[in-house]
């Protein structure tokens, strides 16, 4: 029973991190039609930025996390402005560009930071015990912070003017433009937000596990599974699917083996792609 609760909590923690990654992927897809394979590289960039700020410059964790989100956001701005923008009329070119970006970013990370594994010093190091269940405080912190970010983002998209513009562009870019929405600005903004959330996910992963040049690959694959499950481009679907995948993952890791559980995830992903291409929760953004 205690093990089960432990696994469920871990599942929620991972689900919230996956959610952060998946939102960026789903927005790239919803607004630009681009399958962004390089999104994992932004997760990695966020983790490296936070690692350097905390370890080398001794900047406190929260400040470093915020700074890393800012740095990666700026990086995302440049990447969107100078590469993806040119691929907007041909989404497959966006996919190709993102493949090139993985090469550039991951190898640049190896060159700049070396191939060794690193770890971000977590904000909390202890554990708390609730009714016999021992939980690492940092995990709880990651879950709370990620969930807050997700909720904040959701409200932003639903309530604010620019959030509504994003949904309008995803719905019908041409009509949105006729209504006076600057597509360039909205898509750029959405991409930057995706990168900022990816950086947050990177900091979270780096503080729980290790920081490596290829650390973005696994959560990115999860994000693909999630957005397929949730319906391409759907934000609400991505939220729900992220937690489902997080829970399934950690239960499978606890009771079967995590590697084989991954296969199961991919098979389900391919089957959904083929038989229910709009995803299980498919709907508009």
């Amino acid at each position: 029973m205690i093990q089960l609760i432990q696994q469920l909590v871990n599942g929620l923690v991972m689900g919230s991190i996956y959610g952060l990654v998946a939102l960026g992927v789903t927005m790239s897809f919803g607004l630009m039609g681009i399958v962004n394979f390089a999104h994992g590289a932004f997760v990695m960039a966020g983790a490296f930025a936070a690692f350097y700020l905390t370890t080398l410059y001794g900047i406190p964790f929260l400040l470093a996390a915020a700074a890393s989100m800012g740095i990666v956001g700026a990086l995302g701005f440049l990447v969107e402005r100078y590469s993806f923008r040119f691929a907007r009329h041909e989404p497959i070119n966006g996919l190709m560009i993102s493949i090139g970006l993985i090469y550039v970013m991951e190898n640049a990370a190896i060159l700049l930071f070396g191939p060794e594994n690193k770890a971000i010093q977590p904000l909390f190091s202890g554990t708390i015990e609730v009714g016999g269940v021992v939980l690492a405080t940092q995990r709880i912190f990651v879950f709370v912070a990620s969930s807050l970010l997700l909720a904040f983002f959701y409200l932003y998209v639903k309530k604010t003017k620019s959030g509504k513009s994003m949904r309008a562009v995803a719905e019908n870019a041409f009509a949105a433009q006729l209504m006076g929405i600057s597509i360039d600005r909205i898509i750029g903004l959405a991409f930057v937000i995706g990168c900022v959330l990816a950086a947050a996910a990177g900091v979270a992963l780096g503080s729980l596990f290790v920081v490596t040049a290829h650390m973005g690959a696994a959560p990115l694959m999860k994000a693909f599974v999630i957005i397929t499950l949730g319906g391409f481009g759907s934000i609400r679907g991505a939220f729900v699917a992220a937690f489902i995948i997080g829970l399934v993952d950690s239960l499978a890791a606890g009771y079967v083996s995590s590697a084989w559980a991954d296969i199961f995830g991919y098979v389900v992903f391919i089957l959904i792609l083929i038989f229910k291409p709009k995803g299980i929760f498919g709907e508009g953004t």
Partner: peptide, 14 residues
């Protein structure tokens, strides 16, 4: 080499 490939590839596509 990988970075050069990546950059070349991006430039090529664009």
């Amino acid at each position: 080499r990988m970075i050069a490939y990546g950059l070349f590839f991006i430039v090529f596509i664009i």
